[in-house]
Amino acid sequence: MNKDTLNIGGREFHSRFILGSGKYSLNLIEAAVKDAGAELITVAVRRANTKEQENILDYIPKNVTLLPNTSGARTAEEAARIARLGRELGCGDFVKIEIMRDSKYLLPDNAETIRATEILAKEGFIVLPYMYPDLYAARDLVGAGAAAVMPLASPIGSNKGLATREFIQILVDEIDLPIIVDAGIGRPSQACEAMEMGVDAIMANTALATAGDTPLMAAAFKQAIEAGRKAYLSGLGRVLGRGGDASDPLTGFLRD
């Protein structure tokens, strides 16, 4: 296989596993990053306090690119404000836009997300918008200057897998940007299935944070994502409409 790299906003990545860092302890992050082989890791921006002296940046290897999210934003303007603060924290121009106005299902607001993408792309950010998989919204995100599109598989933190499978496939087929499945992937097999469909990368957080052994699950996801990628590149075998098709020669049987 030739060098198979993921290009986002002019940056080249060898890993197709984007790791979330939420809901697990700081001292597991280093091991999870290593076992995931991740080169991109998401972080959130929150009010600082002086009680907690530990900082997440001390636990993330220096060669890993930070992808700050805009969680907590309810409008494009709030997302832009959080993105600018994230950039000021001095770790680059990547931002994952996350705008929600619903706290039960945590579904992204596509219209506000498109607006935020436009604002931030103009300011030079490398914008990765988290979105509900809708073809028109994805096209608008491309027009707004997104560097990738991040459709959800199922609600955030649900571990329910590829509930939006058919709609993600449409984005894979029609959108000429990296498609990164984000939210809802609960098992390595689901990550593998999405990669077999031709998505470019997988983002996972809760699947690891709620696993019995977070670094081991990170390693399992890494292998599943690599397997799915290879399967996609190799071209999946066909599915028969009905009946069977022998794998063994149909001659030379030990009978007359």
Partner: peptide
């Protein structure tokens, strides 16, 4: 004034 930092997140 808002003073922020990075924390774990998805």
């Amino acid at each position: 004034i808002e003073i922020v930092r990075f924390v774990g997140g998805g």
